[in-house]
Amino acid sequence: MRTITYLQAVREAMEEEMERDEKVFVIGLDVGTGLTFGVTTGMIDKFGKERVIDTPIAELSVAGVATGAALNGLRPVMEVMLQDFITLCMEQITNQASKARLMTGGQLKAPVVFRAPGGWFGSFAAQHSQSLEAWFAHIPGLKVIAPSTPAEAKALLKAAIRDDNPVAFFEHKKLFGRTGEVSEYGEDYVIEIGKADIKREGTDVSIITYSNMIWEAMDAAEELAKEGISCEVLDLRTISPMDREAICETVKKTGKVVVAEEGVETGGVGAEVTAIIADEVYAYLDAPVKRVACPMIPIPFNPDLERFVVPNKDNIIDAVREVING
């Protein structure tokens, strides 16, 4: 085991897969230099521009190029600079990549990964700070992943690249610098897509969340522990297909739930989690489910106003107290 950053883990996942399988390649804006966050920096020296392909600024078509290459047998990883810009790719992801399998009666498959860092970063303003995972969870035929630790980022991206289906893989900009223990380079550790993970065991209340909000939840749980409140933190890891079993298990255990996310509340990931709970384990609830999410406001630029809008551990603590105290 070594300690590396989330960013290095993402890069290693791509490098290991490219070494393992010649069909895997990286395509996107500025991937040659990796200028944006540095995720792909240096890869062009290892693999050459044949496999680290810079493109014009044409996200929609590039998403289609990646998909088309996948339809003919390759395994592209498309980097979209920011999750906000993946809105430009929606037609190809939604109508082409995710539907190719069914529409062709199983003749084609589209093993393509769309990587895009989302979330707030500190006054990046309304068009550089969004968390749009819920949009993608609404698309049948597409898998959606948003890991919270370096080890999981690496293992899940490797799984995504090997998956025969299109996968939207969402990093969080705030997580890129986070460090964690990751297996040695080349050890080939892969996590199954669609499995949630308990990040902290607890008995009084379940905090169900994912991505960077996990760390807000962990901090909240730590503080609440001092008050004698025992929180279980469940990391969804995969947003679609969602791990219904893990959600139900933690609800059965604690009977109280806070669902947290950085995206907006309406039609959000939390809404889906809450609906699963209502459908399957309603009888186990001791209190109404409480959601913590971004209000229906575009992210403001002003740092104080941004902090007010983007949910954090204090919002989670308040929500936990509410479900505990009723």
Binding site: A66, G68, L71, N72, P76, Q96
Partner: peptide, 21 residues
């Protein structure tokens, strides 16, 4: 490799397939 119900959308797929060649 498919027909498209979205006007123009076959073109990016075709560029990708041609790239794969």
């Amino acid at each position: 490799l498919g027909a498209n119900g979205v006007v123009g959308s076959g073109m990016p797929l075709a560029v990708g397939a041609a790239l794969s060649l």
